[in-house]
């Protein structure tokens, strides 16, 4: 039976928010350099992180203090150069792609935030003895 404050859900939501933030940061950097010659657009990859999460590791993390899983969230988000055509000045930033990435990241972030808030509301409900 899973508890209300089950940390795996919170960790997953936290990861979703962290990735959304990383995407937002990468796109902001790309947009800032939209006119910089020879700048190559960057995008966030987290495939290695995902693979690491999918391979079964010791599931004995029943600790109330999720310090270990919390630190395991951040690494693995890396930047790579995005594919795409190069402009004449060697720049590969595409305005529409960056705006789309930012919108999607904002949506992901809002979704995770809503779920997390609902999760916290349940915890608070339990703490306040259903009042």
């Amino acid at each position: 039976m899973s508890s209300i404050s089950e940390s795996s859900v919170i960790t997953a939501l936290r990861r979703q928010m962290t990735i959304a933030v990383a995407k937002q940061v990468a796109s902001a950097g790309n947009l800032a350099n939209i006119d910089t010659p020879n700048y190559k657009a960057k995008e966030v990859t987290f495939a290695d992180t995902l693979k690491g999460k999918l391979t079964p590791t010791a599931p004995a993390s029943n600790s109330t203090f999720p310090t270990k899983s919390a630190t395991a969230v951040d690494p693995g988000i890396t930047l790579k150069e995005a594919d795409g055509p190069e402009r004449r000045d060697g720049n590969t930033v595409q305005l529409d792609r960056e705006m789309l990435t930012m919108s999607r990241a904002a949506g992901d972030f809002a979704a995770a935030q809503t779920a997390l808030a609902a999760k916290f509301r349940l915890v608070r409900y339990a703490i306040n003895e259903s009042k």
């Binding site: 928010m17 902001a28 930012m102 916290f120």
Partner: peptide, 20 residues
């Protein structure tokens, strides 16, 4: 304009996270 829009989106995300 694109960068102003980017700042707006980031600010919304910060505000959203403060709602937690």
């Amino acid at each position: 304009q694109a960068n102003i829009a980017a700042i707006g989106m980031i600010r919304e995300m910060v505000a959203k996270s403060l709602e937690l």
